[in-house]
Design a protein around this nucleic acid. Structure first.
Lengths: 127, 127
DNA sequence: CATATATTTTAGTTTATACTAAATACTGAT
DNA sequence: ATCAGTATTTAGTATAAACTAAAATATATG
């Protein structure tokens, strides 16, 4: 088990990509649609990291490039990621239910951190 | 499992510390003795990261601070680390045996090629 | 060929991390 | 209180990573 696999999956952005690809393949463009907060180029760079680590595979389909996860390359990390996502979904569901029962006008958690400085420019589609 | 645990163990330096603490506790000073390539302060900073992630625990003993691993906090990562270290040791042992057999039969002075990473003992000091 | 689409790569910037050196804090002993 | 030993924290620096905008590459189509 290569140690650098840990570094690969330690990145939240790369885990986001893996999550999107986990149950089926997608093109680079589809991935970017699901992550509109960063540019297409940034997605492509992370895909390159994942690919060079052997974690995803690429295949050409016309002008598109289709990516898929190589689950077997992740070894014991694969079930860990699944568990992590499962837990996250579960907690999200729990919190939703909590807010539901509260039924108040304020689901307001006190301080919601907008830690990214707010400036977020998005690549615009050519019109 | 908290996602940031992955980032914690993704650092080779922190894994080195975990490896040193894995089978028993040590003081900060003892840890630094085992890692003379960085300063005491750097060791302390990494210990802080590990401690804030809940991965190690600290206890006072006189003027020293004794650290130990909280294996349970690592969850499924614990066996993964053990496996990783096991593999590494195994490969190291294999290489040692290879060198041994090479040295045994004929210690002749022909230069035996080694793969990268091997330090060759200097035959003589340049004077 | 020219053009449009889809993606990758490059160059430069920002941000995060690891580190060093020095200062500070804590502990036990005198 | 002061000193010596041990550890932490601070301030500053160097390096690596993530990102953006733009240029470049590749592929299909008219």
């Amino acid at each position: 088990m290569p140690a650098d696999l840990l570094a690969v999956v330690a990145s939240p952005r790369r885990r986001e990509i893996l999550r999107l690809l986990w149950d089926g393949e997608r093109t680079a463009g589809e991935l970017h649609e699901a992550m509109p907060d960063i540019t297409f180029g940034a997605v492509s760079l992370q895909l390159k990291v994942l690919r060079e680590a052997g974690v995803v595979e690429r295949r050409a389909d016309g002008q598109a490039r289709v990516y898929r996860v190589r689950h077997e390359a992740l070894g014991d990390l694969a079930p860990m990621l699944e568990q992590m996502w499962g837990d996250a979904l579960w907690r999200l569901k729990l919190r939703a239910e909590l807010d539901e029962t509260r039924r108040g006008p304020r689901p307001g958690r006190g301080r919601t951190r907008r830690s990214h400085g707010g400036r977020r420019r998005q690549r615009r589609k050519p019109s």
